[in-house]
Amino acid sequence: MHELALTCAIVESAEDAASGRRVIRVTLEIGRLSGVMTEAIRFCFDEVARGTGVEGAVLDIREPDGRARCRGCGAEFATPDLYTACRCGGLDLERLQGLELTINSIELAEAA
């Protein structure tokens, strides 16, 4: 389950960026075609965050839908998966959206 390794990386990055302050929110972007289950990330998150400065933080996950542009005819269209061809039959697609795997921001608690 690669989501556990990803969650470890998320918590580690958040903690590094927090510089010792408590993290109260972590905002991620996990595209619907990224191959990562957001449910599994949520499942791991509380456990991985326990005992760190990220413990108890709210996990905010945006899930962009898949979009691609056909390199053959130039059409731009929604892609529900990674194998649907363009209407012109083209398979050489530029993936515009849906593969995101990023940690966008963290929110810190006000310093006491």
């Binding site: 990055s13 810190l108 006000e110």
Partner: peptide, 11 residues
Amino acid sequence: TTVALEARILA
């Protein structure tokens, strides 16, 4: 209080 990271999770 928001820190923008915009980093790949697998960076």
